[in-house]
Design a protein around this nucleic acid. Structure first.
Length: 523
RNA sequence: GCCCUCAUAGCUCAACGGAUAGAGUACCGGUCUUCGGAACCGAGGAUGGGGGUUCGAUUCCCUCUGAGGGCACCA
């Protein structure tokens, strides 16, 4: 429907001789502004020397010439907005048809979490974890062919694995926590060198993390990519290095080999081979991303923590050097999302989490205390790029009043009504057109049909947190509908009201499911 | 010093350059004749300071202040 409105507006613009670029059709937050609204006249009026309201008037006049049985009313409002009100039959058929999406089949790879196999996930990982998981679900629903990928930093040649090995063999203290110690005690490291011990311990840590991610967080991955087994062992890093050298993108200085990243837009050149002859992680990162493109993905997305934001530029610079494809919007790849830092607040003082200071809050503890639904909501209802201060006392207080319960409650209530109607007789015909004369019934219907627009928009702007706003608004409409319309009355029920209630229930459940949150029938 | 994020109601957060800046929570007042009151209705309360671009700026640009992050031959 949104596309139809867009086409109608475009046609009208052309008919009256106004050349225009993009046309924006939005779903107004205020239902008195119609089911759809456009600011086209405001945007293009001035450019053509016409007042916005005048242009809007002309457009409406033109649109009304080709009357559509889907549009009941068009009006010019405010400074020159054009508001569209759908006919009952258009609204009803949109409800019955349900959401549908164009299966573009674009192959998207999204890598998220990718925590190092040196310890457990803490709350800092929560944001990128749930953002990545929900974004994957949205993109898949919107018709993309999505591969979720987890990169395991387990290369035996890396410093962290060597340090982990030292700790395993009792020669170091790095990464040591009670949990890690427990694992160390269970493994027989005798006869192993540091590297092998590190790889072994990392495998054990990774196994636990994977179990927690899948079972505890409800996030699933299609590919668990082992740096050690797949990248290092295949010699991809050496191949990449050779390629960079042969393309004359490197030079030697101070005994090290440097990549000429500054010539391609980075702030400075980067070392790829240290003076001791070993390769930096940057090489394997480039090789890994090259590998993703080689596997045929058109879009490669990374979700990183704030401490990695300095890497964005150099990765995209590498992409330009190697000719990685641009996105459809002509942006550099990989597409990187940065989850802002989570700070801790204790006794009114904010601080960064630090393992040494012992003030680390594990994601596992949060899930145990509050349940996965509350935790997922907590991390998903705000934009990724705002800093988040985590206050355990506040979290406890908010968990009891979490808006997630509001949406779940509305769902359970509708489920209960639908259940009740099963034992009742169908009442007198009360058609849809009649039903939506009641304002709250009409806005609920309209809000339900907004679902595909929300999904499509997120697949373009990646504002995953708007799902939480949508489901809350939907629940509010559902509650208003409940207040105003009786579905079951005595021993009969109102069929059209029940149909609307069921669509509302389904849409609530579907939205919650994108967020990875349950939609209970009763609570 | 250089680079990146962020600053909105008491608190936690929204708002593709557009309509009266929205929610939740807290506080105050109302609705129990309950298809589920974990609900509904109402009131008060906000864009850090200063410039600029624009018909129009929370949004874009500059600057100041404040918070956080990054500036390794660590990952």
């Amino acid at each position: 429907m949104k596309k139809k409105i867009e086409a109608i507006v475009a046609e009208a613009l052309e008919a009256i001789g106004v050349t225009a670029g993009a046309i924006k059709i939005e779903r107004p937050s205020d239902s008195s502004h119609g089911d759809y609204s456009t600011n086209t006249a405001l945007v293009y009026g001035k450019k053509h020397g016409i007042s916005p309201r005048e242009l809007a008037g002309k457009l409406v006049e033109r649109i009304l010439e080709n009357s559509s049985d889907e549009i009941e009313k068009i009006e010019v409002a405010g400074a020159g907005f054009i508001n569209f009100f759908l006919t009952p039959s258009a609204l009803e058929s949109a409800l019955e048809k349900g959401p549908s999406f164009f299966k573009s089949g674009d192959r998207v790879n999204i890598e998220f979490i990718s925590t190092n196999p040196t310890g457990e996930l803490h709350i800092g990982h929560g944001r990128s974890a749930f953002f990545g998981d929900t974004l994957s679900r949205v993109l898949a629903l919107a018709g993309k062919d999505v591969t979720r990928e987890f990169y395991i930093n387990d290369s035996r040649e890396s410093n962290q694995i060597r340090e982990l090995g030292k700790t395993a063999l009792g020669k170091g203290e790095q990464y040591k926590t009670p949990e890690l110690e427990e694992k160390i005690n269970k493994i027989d490291f005798s006869g192993m060198g540091e590297e092998t011990a590190g790889v072994e311990l990392a495998r054990s840590v990774q196994e636990s993390n994977r179990k927690f991610i899948e079972k505890g967080l409800g996030a699933h991955f299609d590919v668990w990519y082992s740096e050690d087994k797949e990248l290092r062992a295949s010699g991809a890093n050496e191949k990449m290095l050779e390629r960079l050298k042969s393309q004359n993108l490197t030079y030697e200085k101070d005994g090290a080999l440097w990549l000429k990243t500054s010539e391609y837009g980075d702030d400075e050149d980067r070392v790829v081979v240290r003076s001791d002859g070993t390769m930096t992680y940057f090489v394997s990162d480039i090789a890994y991303h090259q590998n993703k493109f080689d596997r045929g993905f058109q879009t490669v997305i990374d979700v990183w923590g704030a401490d990695h934001h300095g890497h964005v530029k150099r990765m995209q610079t590498a992409g330009r050097m190697l000719g990685w494809p641009k996105t459809q919007n002509d942006a550099d790849q990989p597409v990187v999302f940065i989850a802002q830092m989570v700070l801790l607040k204790e006794d009114g003082v904010s601080s960064k989490m630090s393992k040494r200071a012992g003030n680390v809050i594990l994601l596992r503890d949060l899930v145990e205390e509050f349940g996965i639904d509350v935790v997922r909501w907590f991390f998903s209802d705000r934009a990724l790029n705002t800093q988040m201060t985590f206050d355990m006392a506040l979290a406890r207080e908010q968990s009891e009043k979490n808006p997630v319960f509001y949406a779940q409650y509305a769902h359970a209530r509708l489920a209960s009504i639908a259940e009740k109607c099963k034992g009742l007789n169908e009442g007198n015909a009360n058609n849809f057109a009649n039903l939506i004369k009641i304002t709250s019934a009409r806005s609920l219907a309209s809000k339900i049909t907004e679902f595909p627009d929300v999904v499509t928009e997120i697949s373009r702007d990646y504002n995953v947190h708007s799902l939480a706003g949508y489901v809350t608004a939907l629940a509010t409409e559902a509650n208003a509908f409940y207040r105003d319309v009786r579905v079951a009355d005595g021993d009969t029920f109102n069929p059209s009201a029940l149909a609307l209630a069921i669509r509302a229930k389904e849409t609530l459940a579907e939205t919650l499911s994108l967020l990875g949150i349950s939609a209970p029938e009763r609570m």
